Amino acid sequence: MPASKNPAIEDYLKTVYSHTEWQPDPITPKALADKLGVAPSSVTEMVKKMAAQGLIAHVPYGPLRLTDDGRERALAVVRRHRLIETWLVREMGYGWDEVHDEAEVLEHALSDRLLETIDARLGRPSRDPHGDAIPAADGSLAVERFVRLDEAAAGHAGRVLRISDRDPEVLRSLAAAGVAPGMVVVVEPSDASGERVRIRFAPGGDGDAHAVPAEASPIELTTEAAAEIWITG
C-alpha cells in the first residue's frame, strides 16, 4: 500500500508536521510516542520504515524532521483533516469542539474526488473553524507572524489566528467568552498573580460576526486557556 494511503503513516506524518507548525522545536521520538499513544518501540520501527521511504530524516536518538516528500504528504493529510472539520461545522451542524475526532476517522476514508467536491462547495476556505490554515491542493500554505497569547506583552494588539482544538472544554469556555478566530484583541496588564491574562476586544476583526461594541469590557482568561490561542505578531 502506498505510504500516502497508509493510515498509520498518515497519522505519523501529520503529527510530526503539526508539532512544529506553531513552535520551532522538532519532535523527539518520545514526544511522538506520547502524542500518538503508542509504545516507543513502535515509533522506532515506524520511523525506520518512513526513513527508508524517504519521508523522515532521522539520526538515532535525535529529533525527527520531515523530508520535502514527507512534508508534501503531511500537508495533504492536514488539508483533508481541516477541510473535513470545516465541512462538519458549516454543513453538518457540528460544534467546533466536536469535529476533531470525526475528522481523524474521515480523513483516511474520503476519496480525492469527494474532497475536491467538498472544497468547492465550501468556497475554497483558507482556514478551518479553529483558525488553522488549510493547505491548498498544490500544498501551498498561508503563513503569518504569530505570538502565543500568554506570551504576548501588555499593549500588544493582534488578530486571533488560531485556537488549539486539543481540549474541547477550552474551546467551549472560549466560545462562551466570545473569543474566536478573526477577533482582534489587545493584551491588558496582567493581574499580580500572573495566573490570568486580561484582554479586551478591539474593532477590525474579520467580518460583521466579530463586530465589537464600543462598551466592550476586558475579559480574563486563565494562562492555560491563553496558551491555546495564537494571535498575529
Rank of each mutant, 00 (worst) to 15 (best):
S173T: 11
K14P: 00
D34I: 02
E215D: 09
K48S: 14
W96D: 12
G37Y: 10
P29M: 02
I231P: 09
A39E: 09
L88I: 05
R196F: 05
I118M: 15
R162G: 01
V38Q: 03
I219F: 02
M92C: 14
A57Y: 00
R200M: 04
L64H: 10
E188R: 07
V77I: 13
D128E: 05
E21R: 14
D101I: 06
V212S: 00
A176I: 01
E224I: 11
F201P: 04
A39V: 08
R172N: 02
I56K: 07
S126G: 14
L75G: 12
G158A: 04
D167T: 12
E45Q: 14
V185A: 05
S111Y: 01
V187C: 09
V43C: 10
S18I: 08
L66P: 06
G54Q: 06
A52P: 00
L161N: 03
T222W: 01
P26N: 07
G62E: 14
I163S: 09
Y61K: 10
S18A: 15
Q53S: 13
Q53T: 03
G139K: 05
H19E: 06
I231W: 09
S164T: 14
V143H: 07
V47Y: 01
T28F: 03
H100R: 15
D165E: 12
R166A: 15
D11T: 09
A176H: 06
L115Y: 08
H108A: 01
D119C: 09
A103L: 12
K30Y: 08
L36V: 04
H130A: 11
D167K: 15
R79M: 14
P29I: 08
G204F: 09
E224V: 11
A136G: 14
E151A: 13
H130P: 00
L149A: 04
W96M: 10
G233V: 10
A109M: 07
R82N: 15
D132T: 05
S41E: 10
A74M: 07
G155I: 06
R65V: 14
I134A: 13
R198I: 08
G123N: 08
V186P: 00
I229D: 01
T28C: 02
P63G: 13
E224A: 13
P29A: 05
P40C: 03
A211N: 05
D68N: 11
A3I: 15
V185P: 02
A152E: 02
V184M: 04
I56W: 13
T20H: 03
R172H: 04
P29L: 10
G207A: 10
T20G: 09
R159D: 02
I231K: 07
D11C: 07
E188P: 01
V105G: 03
A225R: 10
P189N: 03
M50L: 14
V99N: 03
H210C: 07
A180E: 12
P7N: 06
I219W: 03
Y12K: 05
D11K: 12
D167E: 13
T222I: 03
I163P: 04
V38L: 05
P135M: 12
V47P: 07
I199Q: 07
T232E: 15
K49G: 04
G178M: 03
E91Y: 00
G123T: 10
L122H: 08
V184D: 04
M50I: 03
V187P: 01
G37E: 07
R198Y: 11
Y17I: 11
I199F: 06
T28S: 15
A76K: 14
